[in-house]
Design a protein around this nucleic acid. Sequence first.
DNA 1: TAGGCCATCTGGTCCT
DNA 2: AGGACCAGATGGCCTA
Length: 126
Amino acid sequence: MKSFTDSSTGSESESKSQSIPETMERVTRRRMAANARERKRMQGLNTAFDCLRRVVPQWGQDKKLSKYETLQMALSYIMALSSILSEAEHYSTSQRDWCVQSEGYAFLACDSSADLEEFSYSAESY
DNA sequence: TAGGCCATCTGGTCCT
DNA sequence: AGGACCAGATGGCCTA
């Protein structure tokens, strides 16, 4: 694969031939800038994945979730939480003084990775 | 050693 | 024209 990361060779002789406006040097410079932007973009994406990993349940895994697993887990987690929320809303409309701090929902305030054994939704169920 | 995951490069497309 | 986004290709690293 041809790489533009090493631009040290050949650029000087090409810059002397000014008859061609779009020199190789110029193309190389543009490519390197695009590579740098892409790298930065992917780093931003990975930072976002790390943030997501921190808020998503890990199910006691010591190994870091892959990107695909992180997305799957986030999807399951969101589905489960919205299910709980709609259940709670349904319950609160019928019984106004319903206590949100009942045992079944206490885990919401927990550290995301711990104490989630009672959280009975699995990724396969969605 | 094969397979999974990832980072990077690259060219194409769309948008400003 | 240049930047953002995307998908394919490629090579490196790690683990079973």
